[in-house]
């Protein structure tokens, strides 16, 4: 589904991603872990099409199509979704109105007719229930004055509405209490299917108790320096990153 080949990206002339290789097949969940500043958010942003980052090399194929030339909205319409580490507050635009626009723009891209108000509301109510999202939040300006937990839940809610093929979650678990974490995980798991995939960026093993990954990768200094089965996450939880850093330094 997603095939990243020697991806390099920089910002303000500084190279952050230094040759990423990653293969994600339909049905799989990949966890990406690593110390702060390793480039995890950068990778997520480059996949979603953030324009501040300059891609300096490599390729990314999504279902066989090169996406690096696509605008962010085209990637979304192709089925890529990024849950932001820091969701943006948008004054004056209600969550519901925002999502309605998003859903119908994506439908237009796919040559489908727009949902009418009733169909849309029905669908949204179901999804809101799924992530225990309060109806009153939907009518408020997008993320404005939302608590950290509400913002993260809103990300998962939007994901549930848009039903992406590939979901990229950037530290959606940080700052959540255990109940909120469970809700987020349920949201993600409800989308799990043989046709879909997810990349879960996290600091903590605890999210992976709920969203069990097929593979765990460690990103460090712009490279994936270690990959393994789900047990790797447990090992990292126990031993921290120092041993990995030491391994990398020894090699270089």
């Amino acid at each position: 589904m997603l095939s990243i080949n020697d991806l390099r990206a920089s910002i303000e002339g500084k190279e952050i991603l230094k040759g990423i290789n990653l293969e994600v097949k339909a049905g799989e969940v990949h966890a990406i872990m690593g110390p702060n500043g390793s480039g995890k958010s950068t990778l997520a942003s480059v996949l979603a099409g953030r324009e501040e980052y300059e891609v300096t090399g490599g390729s990314v194929l999504f279902e066989g199509k090169g996406i690096l030339e696509m605008a962010p909205e085209e990637r979304a319409a192709e089925g890529i979704f990024l849950a932001f580490q820091y969701p943006v507050e948008i004054p004056g635009v209600t969550t519901i109105n925002f999502l309605k626009t998003a859903v119908n723009e994506i439908r237009k891209y796919r040559g489908e007719s727009p949902l009418d108000a009733a169909q849309f509301l029905k669908m949204v109510r179901e999804k809101a229930k799924l992530v225990s999202m309060n109806d009153s939040l939907l009518k408020r300006a997008l993320n404005e004055g939302f608590s950290g937990g509400e913002k993260k839940r809103n990300e998962i809610f939007q994901m549930a509405v848009l039903e992406p093929k590939l979901a990229i979650l950037d530290e959606t678990d940080s700052g959540l209490d255990i109940d909120a974490l469970r809700i987020v995980a349920e949201g993600v798991n409800s989308l799990r299917s043989p046709e879909r995939a997810a990349i879960v960026v996290t600091h903590y093993q605890r999210l992976l108790d709920y969203i069990v990954p097929d593979f765990v990768h460690v990103l460090y200094k712009g490279r994936i320096v270690k990959s393994g089965p789900k047990e790797l996450a447990l090992e990292l939880e126990e031993k921290g990153y120092d041993w990995i850093k030491a391994e990398v330094e020894a090699l270089s």
Binding site: R50, F84, V88, G92
Partner: peptide
């Protein structure tokens, strides 16, 4: 606000449409 624009675009809303929504909200 470019950050807001990117957020909206990442949800499938085209740049002109996202601009429009932001501006309309600004006027509201």
């Amino acid at each position: 606000d470019e950050e807001a624009l990117f957020y909206m675009r990442s949800r499938g809303i085209s740049r002109p449409e996202a601009l429009s929504l932001l501006m309309f909200a600004f006027c509201a």
